[in-house]
Design a protein around this nucleic acid. Sequence first.
RNA 1: GGGGGAUUAGCUCAGUUGGUUUAGAGCGCUUGCUUCACACGCAAGAGGUCACUGGUUCGAAUCCAGUAUCUCCCACCA
Length: 878
Amino acid sequence: MQLSSQYDPSSIEDKWYQVWMDQQAFRSVPDQRPPYTITIPPPNVTGILHMGHILNNTIQDVLIRRKRMQGFNACWVPGTDHASIATEAKVVQMLAQQGIKKSDLAREDFLAHAFAWKEKYGGIILSQLRKLGASCDWERTAFTMDEGYSKEVIQVFCDLYRKGYVYRGVRMVNWDPSAQTAVSDEEVNHKETQGHLYHLRYEIEGRHGEAVVIATTRPETILGDTAIAIHPEDERYTHLHGARAIVPLVGRSIPIILDTYVDREFGTGCLKITPAHDVNDYEIGIRHRLPVIDAINPDGTISAAGELYVGQDRFAVRKQIAKDLDAAGHLVKQEPYTHAVGYSERTNAAIEPRLSQQWFLKMKDISQPALQAVTDGEVKLIPDKFVNTYRHWMENVRDWCLSRQLWWGHRIPAWYIVGTDQVVVAENEALALQQARELTANPSLTMADLSQDEDVLDTWASSWLWPISVFKGISEPENEEIRYYYPTNDLVTAPEILFFWVARMIIAGYEYRGQKPFQNVYLTGIVRDDQRRKMSKSLGNSPDPLDLIAQYGADAVRVGMLLASPAGNDLLYKEILMEQGRNFANKIWNAFRLVMSWETSQEVPGDRDLLAIDWMTNKLDASLLEIQDHFDKFRISDALMSVYKLIWDDFCSWFLEMIKPDYGKPISQAAKEGTVVLFEKLLQVLHPFMPFMSEELWHGLRERPASDLICLSSMPEAATPNLANLEEVALIQEIITTVRSFRKDKGIAFKEPVALFVNTEQAATFERYRSLLDRFLNLSELSFVADQPGGTGSMRVRSHEMYIPMANVDTEAEREKILKEIDYTEGFLTSVMKKLSNEKFVGSAPAQVVEIERKKQADAEAKLEVLRKSLNELGGGN
RNA sequence: GGGGGAUUAGCUCAGUUGGUUUAGAGCGCUUGCUUCACACGCAAGAGGUCACUGGUUCGAAUCCAGUAUCUCCCACCA
């Protein structure tokens, strides 16, 4: 068999994914096994795979594949989110390119376009996940606007309304003038923005020449001014109590009011009040029963109520009104000023605080169990530092604005009775009509008398049901699936959406199932570039994951991503990580090539073979325990690093070097079989991380039926490792390393056999591992001595001293080397003795700890003895 | 402004209720090696006063206080 020395993933990955699909390897249906369930954080239906998805989904796949191999009924539910704002924005953009304006379309027509778009491009991301190797049960693929799912979303809204949690009210919302919708607090990014602080002069009504000066960053909002506020105890302005001011340009008379909200230190200490366009002003307006002048239209232009500049954009007006105010003598000064401005996360438009009718969910009561669950550890956050953040947020939770002024989404199931201000909320038209008839006591009402709310629900008002609704847990609360799979086990997501999504899922879980939705929440970091900048399209600093997979292979990409990403830490992406993953794959591939190249004989295994297999078996057991421990603590990177070192260092660098036959010679059949068995176990441990290559080699190592897949095999379980054996081999390895170092140092080529003389009390150990020493050190002779033979150089491991003959012994260099070792060992001994001579230490430290120190002392003293003896023999003395 | 987190080798991070550590890993770096699985490799090696200052303790990278720097979340002064 001729195999390339470089592993080529491209020819293998698609092949195995197809086999897995054909054999329904990832299909899950309820059965007798315990379930292990993950519901995917549904990506935007129109999204494409980015580096964050790679990290996130690799972690999920590692978890799910491992549990699948550990005998759980592993179920990973995939799907997509309709992502109302993002998707609608894309559709609007797509239509614009075709010369179609959204405003020219009827709702139904627009939705037809949107669904057509979704059919065409929706779910591309899911097919991309297959390239990564994601072992989802694709038959379960869900979408938050599927018919059944939508039904549950509506049902929940109606239920919450009936329970009194949902209400409708006029509130100041974050208005996105570009998308023309309200967005949630969480979807607003505050950014430091360079602007100006304008000092404006308002004349006092009826007092000629007298004026008050206010400071504002938004002069255009004076069109909506309905008061000036001063602090009641501000002595500079007591003469203004009860007076009225005139709004410049507009000429409107407004009261001067007293409110402690005003900060006397800021600006002039006078604050203009625009209740319609500022959150704080709105609240002050309510306290003082001020009129509200809505001077800005939904699209960001000045409204008729503003009187001036009607129809012009707010930013254009800001510039113009400053000039006009200046010309009219009202602009006292204008200074550069940096302040935080809110921008829409979706459209990046400057947010306009705006009053509007919205639907809200009261959060205080409904969120209590969810707060409790996380504080009590019923739901675990990993890493747990997020618990504090979570608690802080939940304790100060604000009502959730549920409505969005969009078409793409779940239309709010509220109907207004035309000509009245009455509203009914119901699951469907028929029920709504029935309720409306009862409400109005008018049985002759028809649908024509009802008009449905135009708004849709916030996306999160559907995705918060995700772990429930993918199993139809709302509409069929007792069905077999929800009872089997819920609560799910782990959720893997980004900390950015801890409140958007995770907290709300927990709330919904307790409200609708009376149980948590998942046990553990693993919060990944954010993928950044090597300068710690977030990966973004506009910066162009994000590689295309599919290119990376094509270039390095999915297994390598998975390994590369995981190697540098402990939970909760950001991942600094570097191409070199991908190379490391690829190199690892290549290493394994070559180990495979080596083993496959061995010819076998029927001889019994040699001593070296037996030692090697025995040690590797122990090493594997020890590593299995370590790996399990890492997984228990969600230390996925560490678990991978353990596998990496187990394969690269222990298996390839040591075991294969121990067992491989001399060139051109066969290996005993039994030894080869032992090697294959170990290799198979390694591949199984590796499988969750590198599913494709492990499956390929699983089938390459041994003839097996096509149905014998590694992904469905049973994960090896750890036996108790023989620690004495591991300890002994560790000593032998240390000796090998030391002698190799000595050879290199003295320029003795490996090809040149050497004699090794050893002064040790453990000659038996050396003898027992003689065959390994021969193999790694190319020994011509191994003998035990009591003194250093002449013409040799020395080296020490612990208290064993070894000598190798040398042509020219540099006595001075030897002396120096030994003195240096003495120096270090004495320092070490001193620190140990400091502890041991302290009665309080011996008295209060645990016996085990004292014992360890005594051992350290004995070892150090033995070593010093050896060193001093050598020094004497060199003719030095000390 | 309020709250969290961090600060350990050039880089990214471990260090698990203070004592198996005069501190570990991976990558990078240095040196030697065309050793017949692999140069996407082998072998050996260098590299850290654990941010700083105090304190608690027989003992501190680990606990406490303060300082400095960085970072995240929340709220936001017009």
